[in-house]
Amino acid sequence: MEGHKDVLYGLYNDEDVLMDAITKAQKDHLDIHDVFTPFPVHGLDEVMGLSESRLHIAGFVYGALGTLTAFLFMSWVFTRDWPIIFGGKPYWSVPAFIPITFELTVLFSCVGMVITYYTVCGMGPGADNPTLDDRITDDKFCLAFNVSNSSKDEIESLKGFLTESGAEETNIKTI
């Protein structure tokens, strides 16, 4: 695999300790590679300064696409392609199109968003993304630095930072 990275990471026992460590790292202008947690930690994205996810915009676009697909298709079928009178109603009986239009809006939005989510996260059936430690999905909170281009001294100082900020364990792994 191309682009092997050496990652120095510290494992914390608690999310509050981790959050303080991240704040400290930001203050010291340390370049955080990533943070891994066993569950979504409230406020973590703000502390890390992550920009808001734009998935909802994608969801809206997919939904709108579903609305148009359903409504325009049914309109075309019943006014142009094969007009049939049902129950004495007009060909273009808009209220009767609402249920299917709604369902396709939801379907397109949901399926589109889920596919987008997995694509942008680099995930999917059988995807084999490297993980740093098996306990990250259990009870460890991980703060990771990319040290591929760091000198020994820099690595030592980062290690010192991790230990001082409350990490129980530090390690280097090539992923």
């Binding site: 891994f36 973590l44 969801g59 989510y117 942008v120 995930m123």
Partner: peptide, 28 residues
Amino acid sequence: SFVAFGWTGSAKHWQRFESLSLILAGIA
């Protein structure tokens, strides 16, 4: 590993996960 889709627990993934869950809940 196959069915876990290569989940890592990255902060950005969790953020997207929560965003997705909320919108899915909103439309569900």
